[in-house]
Write a protein that binds this DNA or RNA. Structure first.
Length: 571
RNA sequence: GGCCCCGUCGUCUAGCGGCUAGGACGCGACCCUUUCAAGGUUGAGGUGCGGGUUCGAUUCCCGCCGGGGUCACCA
């Protein structure tokens, strides 16, 4: 019986920080392809860098994946919303590479035995010096294979390895041309001699990425490797290792890269750049902002602040402090950033699906389909439709996807999302606004919010005390204090009339309030704006707010009347 | 610099020898409107350049130009 072997894909992040948005796309495509083909999606944690890896990062990455809805069939277990994701149904774990070192060592030893790997004893400083000389001479540095020739036989190499002397293991690179079969780019030929004898086991005894990946992809039965194009040049190394170890070569698909709109790499350091620029602009405007003064303002040690300004460091905590103090938004780079900024996971997965991939089908209205959910992706994802050209990450378009999702959402669902988001990032909002208030706001919020965090702006009038909101002086001068038009009542009259009208209004609902304002405007032969704007400014201090009925109803009668008094005093 | 990859509106993209080169975001105009939004209608905007192949090139080939990736005891 010949059934096609099951497709097994994997996402293999290194746990050295949060999940990058580009990594999220890689994971999404690997997941979608496995789903589409009825296969397995594996999560493997590549923690062979002892110095930089952390369990906390691994947990964070799993949390971000789960939040996006990208669930792995096998891999480390993670509890999300009370459900456990992961496990080891095929018995191919463990999924942390640090726990697989014994396995790598078996294969490493085999490679030495067959003469394809050898110990090398140069220090990294020695090699670095040689590399510098080569670079200065505009030459490509390649390891000279000295250690290979120094110890001529496998038996002697094994003996030296076991002697306890510090060393690395290098792979004896093949001298023939290598072909990387890639399902996106086609066959890529690497000329003979391009590969040098790269390190496959570090002095600390851990395998390098190249070696661990090859062994794991083989032993975990990975059939399709999808990753970003930055890995393209790694692939010939992996193919060479597979050949030396008599392993299969899985199918490869290298995806185009994602950049910022200005074509720079999307990097965590972008946050520091933005913060630094903000700081510099502030200093230009206000000479009293010395590093010392800034240090106090930011609660950061002065030397670090000075270094930060001089681009000597890119400390994230400083960037975040700047964002807080100067009330700016840092660019979102990692999934956690987008989550904090109030994006919906559905908008993110939809948007990143379109970076380097497109479904290539029309929707019912005859237009190119581009709004779809993760379920659609899992039924339609095809490697053949992965593009070749790099993409720029347009946050404006992402925001529009998010806004549309919010607009289409039911009030109840929006309130639920809002509460979840606020609980995590703006707990004071849920403390100040009741469920009833939030529900009322939800409908008014929908066309006004691009992301959940916009609630803070749209609902800001309700988040301050009745005596704490400030009046926009321009609005007060233009509307409240202005002389009334010929034959029209003054703002003072309108507000006083409205106050008594609202005071006796039994049903303080948005509809009833709107009806009252309408009938008042009609009775005085005023345009709606003539009544609405004075009222809006009196109640919120600003010319901008949700529709008045909602605005007043959310505040409630007592607050509305109290605010009206404050407004009247401004006339 | 060596090796490798890529090149359709500002951006994401559709296109797989013949199309008025389509859609989305953004932008402009108009309509609607109690503010801000949202919504509706509508407009501008693209095949990097030069050679071939072909009756015919966005599409195939070559060169140029431009962009990117990679050259670690990081992944």
């Amino acid at each position: 019986m010949t059934s096609a072997p099951p497709v097994i894909t994997r996402f293999a992040p290194s746990p050295t920080g949060h999940l990058h948005i580009g990594g999220a796309r890689t994971a999404l495509f690997c997941w979608a392809y496995a789903r589409r083909m009825g296969g397995h999606f594996t999560l493997r944690i590549e923690d062979t860098d002892q110095a930089r890896s952390s369990d906390e990062s691994a947990r964070g990455i799993m949390e971000d994946l789960a939040w996006l809805g990208i669930e792995w069939d096998e891999g480390p277990t993670h509890v999300y919303n009370g459900r456990t994701i992961g496990g080891d149904p095929r018995n191919v774990g463990p999924f942390f590479q640090a726990r697989r070192v014994h396995l790598y060592n078996q294969y490493l030893r085999k490679l030495v035995e067959i003469g394809r790997a050898y110990p090398a004893f140069e220090s990294s400083e020695e090699l670095e010096a040689k590399r510098k000389i080569a670079v200065a001479a505009k030459q490509t540095y390649r390891y000279d294979r000295a250690a290979y020739h120094a110890i001529p036989t496998p038996a002697e190499r094994l003996k030296r390895m076991d002697s306890g002397e510090p060393h690395v293991l290098r792979f004896l690179a093949p001298s023939h041309e290598l072909i990387v079969p890639d399902q996106v780019l086609g066959d890529i030929k690497i000329p003979a001699g391009e590969l040098d004898d790269f390190v496959i086991r570090k002095a600390d005894g851990f395998p390098t990425y190249h070696f661990a990946v090859v062994v794991d992809d083989e032993t975990m039965g990975i059939t399709h490797v999808m990753r970003a194009q930055e890995h393209l040049y790694n692939t010939p190394r992996h193919v060479a290792l597979q050949q030396a170890l008599s392993f299969r070569t899985p199918a490869y698909a290298h995806m185009p890269l994602i950049f910022n709109m200005d074509a720079s790499k999307m990097s965590k350091r972008d946050k520091a750049k933005v913060a630094r620029l903000t700081l510099k602009n502030a200093i230009q405007k206000d000479a009293s902002l010395t590093p010392a003064a800034l240090a106090t303002k930011l609660s950061i040690e002065e030397p670090a602040v000075a270094d930060f300004l001089a681009a000597e460091n890119d400390r994230l905590d400083i960037a975040e402090a700047v964002a807080r103090v100067f009330k700016i938004n840092l660019p979102e780079i990692e999934v956690a950033d987008f989550r904090q900024a109030g994006y919906l996971p559905e908008a993110i997965t939809n948007f990143i699906s379109l970076l380097g991939w497109s479904p290539g089908v029309k929707s019912a209205d005859g237009k190119d389909l581009e709004r779809f959910d993760i379920g659609f992706l899992s039924q339609n994802f095809a490697i053949e439709r992965i593009g070749k050209t790099n993409a720029k990450f347009d946050r404006v378009k992402l925001a529009s996807f998010d806004a549309q999702l919010i607009a289409e959402m039911s009030d109840a669902e929006l309130v639920k999302r809002l509460k979840t988001w606020c609980a995590e990032f703006r707990p004071e909002v849920t403390r100040k606004l009741s469920d009833d208030q939030l529900t009322m706001l939800a409908a008014a919020l929908k066309p006004r919010c691009k992301v959940l965090s916009d609630i803070v702006n749209v609902a800001s009038f309700a988040l301050v005390g009745d005596n704490d909101y400030t009046f926009d002086p321009a609005a007060v001068a233009k509307v409240l204090k202005a002389a009334p038009k010929e034959g029209q009542p003054s703002a003072l009259t309108i507000l006083t009339d409205m106050k008594s009208g609202l005071e006796s209004l039994e049903d303080f609902s948005p509809a009833a309030i709107d009806a009252l304002i309408h009938s008042y405007a009609e009775s005085k032969a005023l345009k709606m704006g003539d009544v609405a704007q004075p009222l809006r400014i009196a109640i919120t201090g600003s010319t901008v707010s949700p529709p008045l009925g909602v605005t007043l109803a959310v505040l409630g009668k007592p607050s509305t009347l109290a605010r009206l008094s404050r407004g009247i005093a401004q006339c």
